[in-house]
Amino acid sequence: MFPILIKKIGAGLLTTLGVSIVIFVGTNLLPGDAAQIRLGQASTEDSLRALREELGLNLPLYQQYFRWLFNFVQGDFGTSLASGNVTIAQLISDRYENTLIVSSLTAMIGVPISVGLGIIAAMFPGTLYDRILTLGSVTLVAAPEFFTATLMVLFVVFFLGIGNAVVVGSIEDKNLVELITHFILPITTLCLVIAAQLIRMTRAAVLNVMSSPYIEMAILKGIPRRRVVMRHALLNAIGPIVNVVAINLAYVVTGVIVIEVYFGYSGLATLIVQGVQTRDYILIQTLGMIFCATYVILMMIADLSSILSNPRLRHPK
């Protein structure tokens, strides 16, 4: 077990380093630099040169990259190029709470419900319940999230007349229930988005196992269907389910730009888009690393749990 862990961590670190280079090169391929974007229409040769020198944009690219890397591994995230005097740590700390709260609440509420619904659908394939659930989740998979979000606002805020169309106000001193109310629309929308995939994948994974010979044997032995699914099939289906859950959670942390923009609250996904718009490579790099690490760690957990749940992988020959 231990050597596998070491190997996974090593691969994760290498991936992260590779990603940092790709992001840096990509950012520099974009037209304009942070100084030019910041001064915009009002830039002159002189003011551009002054600002570039101040931000260190006059250095050769590889030097900029290594300077960033050197500071980053020492834990110094640097200062935002777009503002010139706000630290990256400050920008992130103003936003990570929003992202963290929304993603963990979504995970807490969305994942158990969807996996549960998926398993029930797998227990009774072909029934009316299964059909309704399948139809519902296919519809949700096909609907883009801004559409789901728009419908939510239209129905909840303008039709029922409750809640806010955007997330307004501060999250300080709020308890769990207040936080859920505060972010109710983004969380509901995200739950619907991930539920669609999770339900379908759980159902498929469980049904797949259900068609294997050992389950047939169990059924023939007269074990009740519920016990067959929960005790014999589910354990073997955990691997694929955990993988889908991990991918969806990573998405909820890093890819919810549409939700953040639509509901007007600031999170990390919006921040990286603003970083790209302002060509703030230091900000982009740092966030890129955070997102990459999130993926790597979640994937690692998924891999490890599928190994742990499967004796054949746990004890390789």
């Binding site: 303008f158 169309a165 955007v166 307004v168 923009v261 639509y262 007007g264």
Partner: peptide, 12 residues
Amino acid sequence: GDPVSRLNAFLA
């Protein structure tokens, strides 16, 4: 940033 969300927030 989004004009539609801004309008929603204003109307609501």
